[in-house]
Design a binder for these strands. Structure first.
Lengths: 401, 401
DNA sequence: TCCAATTAGTTTTCAATCTGAACTATATGG
DNA sequence: CCATATAGTTCAGATTGAAAACTAATTGGA
């Protein structure tokens, strides 16, 4: 007999409805709904909502925030919101910097700190030590604002094994199969720390806290070219968890060799390194080179202009193929593609028009507005969403404690 | 307040468990499980399984098939199976032929008939009329075997709007926005007739009735190059329902114009027409040209060999990009790629190794064994699966009748 | 032949959970 | 100050699966 899914129990109904109510509160956001409004919005009876909300309030996930009035007759409702006294820490390790932030359950970035750190080639232990110093700042800020830290999310620029806390491969950090211990950054946080991929987290940040649309491809141009695929408001990770590798789509059969072992990959035409080299930007720190490149573009330097133009053309080819294959109708540019968007977009759009006419409406090619905090918000948001999607487990744990 | 998902009701538990039990019976297949075995397999109690099975038997979906013995002590169990007296009709409209089949709930193809029909450019009404004549044969066969027809699935080589029964675009039939009335083919069938895409149906047929694996990309080389993406044992259709368009991945930036309006698409290198032309196969019917091409390959004709070799090379590029983007680790070749597999595979594999080394294990590039019946099985299977996934609705309907 | 052992399946009691209706609580406005 | 309106709670009733006790059917050995 094949293994099957778990059987439905009567108690599952409550699990689902707890999540439904919590999600309703989260999505209503600033409007701070009453129990009666939740009943109307979810289709549950007032009786059921009252009982569910009682559990959520008792666990501390939801707070009552005074009476709700809108000038009409009748008894006023009690406004409800996700507790502003519970937070999750977002953390990011990138090639040239470390960043941390504190996000409350409502998705507000309550504290934020970034430090430059040349992490390329540095041992994971060393990087984690530096990150630990930064998280100490977050803990202090949380204590000062009386926010309990429930857990954390740590984003890294590479392929991760979330279950085992292993960075399988982060070529731009020169990390291969590195075992991390992210829990150590937040001892005692009940939900622990979840490791995630930087491009995926940025895509989720964009989904939940940025220009949310249910379906889009997020393109992350950091040192590598990464991508995050959002379908029906969920991250598509593929069977093995590494979907969205836009940087290694083949855009020219006779293209140069790529660090991945293949050849003709998008990254060899549109990665940061490739653009800097084609533009003739001298070696230096990322910040310096970016500054120089933007300056050259502003001065209409022909070499820099052509470099970015070509990158846009090949990015257009990769997006045309991706959009056809995955049926994607919207694209959000992040990372250095966001910085270069003004110079990149014309050739990108004309390339899309040449290789997949009519497929992608130009108005649906947008630039991320979250900048670097998108990754932090997404990394923390994954933990927040996991609570919203299964609050029952959280209630159990908080009842025991 | 945002619209939310439907609230959980106590009755949902039974919906889910009915499906769980039915699915368990379906997956156990020829082993014909007893109630006690189902209880062990699903995690439900014997009492619950008995009650659920009683409903399923009453509705006619499940039959008891005598006592189950395996030489051990104790009371023998009643074997259960999906009823062999209920069936679904699979139907296929393709460029050069029409096909119908009768599939019982257990997935057995009980009757099968194909006729040549040059449908390219023919009006949908005319084609549906011919198909109607063919379905009459199926109805007669079903009556003779005392099988009640529950519904049907109709696969066409194009993009469909399943909800509205519209063929949005089937370039190889020269159909654009054609409204069909598939229900008319099976008047009175309680589940109606579901319209679907041919490549997607073939992929699902492969999943359910062929070399089932939970994750793979099915490549359908009919007149166009189509694809079906199976992730976690489900068809991935994308937000708009048209994912898997492998034929229009850009494999060469300077490639020729494609019928889709783009250029450099895989279809211009590896579509049937492109291969026939490159191989120098003279014009004629599909059957004749295929026969000639296979003959030329067997005779090691250099032009034919090179044509197929090149097609394999570009197919490899498309698969490398797809595998990277969607994290796919297995590929099943169908349609004319299955026929050409012996000559295609070498260049395809070396191309994969060049553009995405190590990504796809050569042993996971396989050829479909279902041949043309895969599409029929998949088209019918979608209706069968819809019953297995929500039997509650079916029970309700059969109780009213 | 007959009974202990074993396995299949049913019946009964109980707890969880939602619905629906009746009820209480708290506001507005004439 | 009371009619009206809206928010929220309480309680009986229905559905459902779990758990345990029960009945049914078969084998094998005394």
């Amino acid at each position: 007999m094949n293994e099957s899914a778990a059987p439905g129990r009567v108690g599952d109904v409550r699990r689902r409805n707890l999540s439904l109510v919590l999600d309703s509160i989260a999505r209503t956001g600033d409007a701070k709904p009453s129990r009666a409004q939740l009943a109307a919005g979810t289709g549950l009876t007032k009786a059921a909502v009252s009982s569910l909300v009682a559990d959520l309030v008792e666990s501390g996930l939801v707070s009552e925030v005074g009476l709700y009035r809108d000038g009409e007759r009748g008894r006023p409702g009690q406004g409800l919101e996700l507790s502003a006294r519970r937070g999750v820490v977002g953390m990011e390790i990138n090639v040239d910097y470390l960043a941390v932030g504190l996000v409350d359950l409502g998705g507000n970035l309550r504290f934020h700190s970034t430090v430059e750190s040349r992490n390329r080639g540095l041992a994971p232990d060393k990087v984690m030590e530096r990150l630990g110093a930064l998280t100490a700042e977050v803990k202090a800020a949380a204590a000062a604002e009386n926010i309990a830290i429930l857990g954390g999310g740590l984003a890294v620029p590479g392929l991760v094994d979330e279950q085992r806390n292993v960075v399988v491969s982060a070529p731009n950090l020169h990390w291969e199969r590195e075992q991390l211990n992210p829990q150590s950054l937040l001892e005692g946080a009940p939900l622990g720390v979840r490791l995630s991929n930087e491009a995926n987290s940025a895509a989720l940040g964009e989904l939940w806290y940025g220009a949310g649309q249910p379906d889009f491809l997020y393109v992350s141009g950091e040192v590598g070219v990464g991508g995050g695929v959002i379908i029906a408001s969920e991250l598509y990770t593929g069977p093995g968890g590494s979907a969205g590798e836009l940087g290694h789509i083949v855009v020219h059969p006779e293209g140069p060799a790529c660090s991945c072992g293949g050849s003709g990959c998008l990254e060899t035409f549109a990665g940061q390194e490739a653009i800097f080299e084609a533009a003739g930007t001298p070696a230096g720190s990322l910040g310096e080179r970016t500054h120089l490149l933007l300056g050259a573009l502003a001065a209409e330097d022909p070499r820099a202009t052509k470099a970015v133009h070509d990158a846009g053309r090949y990015l257009g080819i990769a997006l045309a193929s991706s959009a056809r294959l995955m049926d994607i109708e919207a694209v959000v540019l992040g990372g250095h593609f966001a910085l270069l968007a003004d110079w990149l977009k014309p050739s990108l759009l004309s390339s899309l028009e040449r290789y997949a006419p009519g497929l992608l409406d130009p108005s649906r090619l947008t630039v991320s507005g979250l900048e670097h905090s998108g990754t932090l918000l997404g990394a923390a948001g994954q933990v927040i969403r996991s609570v919203i999607e299964s609050p029952f487990e959280f209630l159990l744990a908080s009842k025991l404690a």
